[in-house]
Each structure stands twice: as C-alpha cells, then as structure tokens.
C-alpha cells in the first residue's frame, strides 16, 4: 500500500477511463495523458489499463508501505525516492518506508505514478478512474488527501532502473515552440456558423490557457470568436476534445471529466491522438489549433500506436537481455 503524506491540488486515481456507460451520461474520466499512463504501465510490465495516481500540482509526497516497483511518467518533475533523484519517465524500486517527493514541475502539467500491479481500488462501472462529478470510482470518488491509504496489487519483484523516451520527444510535432502547444483538430458541426474572418481568427490565435482549466475542461482566452448569428441548440452528445464556443466567444475544450452532453456550438474537435498534449499544457501557456483531416487524424493515431508498440518491444528486449546475463 501507499500512504499519501502531502498533496496539492486535485490528485486522483485514474486508469484509461470508463467507456461503456457513456450512453447513460457517465463521462469517461481517465488519465488526462493516456500515453504517459500506458508508458508507465509498460515499463512495469502491467496491464496498460492499470490505475495510477495522476498528480497535477506540487509539492506531492507519499510513502511506500512495502517494497514495490514504480514508474514516474508524464510531466517533467524534480522527484526523489529516499533522497535519490529520479529522471523523467523512469522506473525504479522502492523499499518499504521509502518516501517519494515531487518538488517541482519544469515541463508539462501532470505526473503519473504507476506501481507494479497497479493501484487496486475497486472497479466501479468497469473502471478504477475517479469520477469527480459523480463522486465514485478511484478512492471514495474524490481527490486524494493526506493520510489516504491506496491499496496496491504490487508484486514485490525487484526491477532494474530503466527510463523511456518521453512521448513529447518521440511524437514531437514540427513548429512546436517552448510554452506553446499545437494541437490538431477537425472541424465540428457548427464550424460553418462562423464567417471566414472568424474562422481565420480561430486558427491564427495563440490562445491562453486560463486558470479556470482542469480535468473538466480548458477555458481559453483570446479574441472573441462569435458565430454569424447566435446559435441555439438543444443539448446533444459531446466527447472529450470537443471545442465549444459559449456566447462570450472564448473557446472551451471539453476534457476527461466533461459532461456527456452540451448545447454550445462546436467549432472543432481535438483529435484523440493529441488530447494528451492538451492534458500536459500548462495553465498560463499558449495553445494553437492546426486544422487536420479525418484520415490524418487516423494516421496520427497509428503513429501513437506505433510508438507504444515499439516501447513494448524495446522493454521486452531489454528484460530478456538482462536475464540472459
């Protein structure tokens, strides 16, 4: 088990998400950076859907209750286990009583702590993810607090230290600048409700990510993007990644804890292969939208799968070579 010693902001238990209840209005939840979660689980030989702790703010501190392997992926953090520094996207081994401290985040927005065997909270409606809106899943359906004890299915098998190349590097996008995230989007249902000049403004703007951005959605700030005439729609199904334009013309990107329906006009949707980039975009930083097509969105997804496939093969190879010696 793991004991939370110190936590800032809404850290929560997340797996890849809850996908079978969407038609009943139950949102997906799940890791904001699903690639980081998968990479951590691959490093540990876990099922890729095993639950981990999503840590959005520092400082964060926890104590391992017994020997276990763990991996830290996602944001670039300054972290220490029992006084030893841990590089980014790294797996290591903790002894019972060891304290893990995350002191600073230098890049990205969310760090993932995965453990060998996964965080063993009960599966609710098919997932271990915390549903913050519905207050179920995860640990008692709420963000973690100091003193919380997280049950772990951890095997105590010792593993060697090993790192993986962060997805940010392997899946780097051209023209990416420091402190600006470029995400690919496909146009959505009400795109044509905006005139050409407004559409151009949407594409060219460097949108600021406001402090009112979280697991539910990202509220952006920039020039007002308003439809030719007010659009009044009944609430209809939406998915994480949908970019809505409320009456003030300031876009909202729906994220993992979003409602499953909404009525604001939708100008575009972030492709699934880039949703993790939004999840790692920092408050106060800039975001730009790049128009893409459905086939290119599928190609981006294939590229993401290829990265994960290569990661699985590489990890297996290194483990085999090590046992050979």
């Amino acid at each position: 088990m793991i004991e939370i010693l110190s936590v800032t902001g809404p850290a929560s238990v997340q797996d890849l998400g809850r996908f079978d209840q969407y038609r009943f209005g139950v949102g997906t939840s799940g890791a904001m950076d699903d690639i980081a979660l998968r990479a951590g689980n691959i490093l540990l030989g876990n099922d890729e859907n095993d639950a981990a702790v999503e840590i959005p703010m520092i400082p964060f501190k926890l104590r391992f209750g017994r020997d276990m392997a763990f991996a830290l992926t996602g944001a670039s953090v300054e972290a220490e286990i029992a006084g030893r520094a841990i590089p980014p996207w790294w797996r290591s081994h903790a002894r019972a009583g060891d304290v893990l401290t995350i002191k600073a985040i230098s890049r990205g927005a969310r760090s993932y702590l995965a453990v060998g065997g996964g965080i063993d909270v009960p599966v609710v409606l098919g997932s271990r993810s915390t549903q913050l809106r519905g207050e179920f899943g995860g640990l008692h359906g709420r963000p973690l607090q100091p003193g919380d004890i997280l049950p772990c299915a951890a095997s105590t098998a010792a593993v060697g230290e090993l790192g993986v190349e962060p997805a940010d590097i392997s899946l780097a996008r051209p023209n990416a600048a420091a402190d600006e995230t470029i995400v690919r989007v496909v146009v959505a249902g009400e795109y044509d409700a905006f005139d050409a000049a407004t559409q151009a403004l949407f594409w060219s703007s460097h949108w600021k990510i406001t402090p009112q951005s979280n697991r539910y959605g990202y509220r952006l700030q920039g020039p007002a993007v308003k439809p030719k005439a007010p659009v009044e729609k009944r609430s209809h199904g939406i998915v994480p990644g949908v970019i809505q334009i409320p009456p003030n013309g300031q876009p909202i990107i729906q994220m993992r804890d979003a409602q499953t329906s909404g009525g604001y006009p939708k100008i575009a949707t972030v492709i699934r292969a880039d949703l993790w980039r939004v999840g790692q975009a920092r408050l106060g930083s800039k975001l730009r939208f790049e128009q893409t097509t459905y086939p290119d969105a599928l190609a981006a997804e294939a590229e993401m799968s290829a990265y994960l496939d290569r990661l699985r093969t590489n990890v297996r190879l290194v483990e085999e070579t090590r046992t050979c010696r």
Partner: peptide
C-alpha cells in the same frame, strides 16, 4: 545509454 526508446542508467 539510449537503446531505441529506452534509457538505461
């Protein structure tokens, strides 16, 4: 030491 996508210490 970088081997493919992995970093060995």
């Amino acid at each position: 030491v970088r081997i493919g996508l992995l970093y060995a210490p």
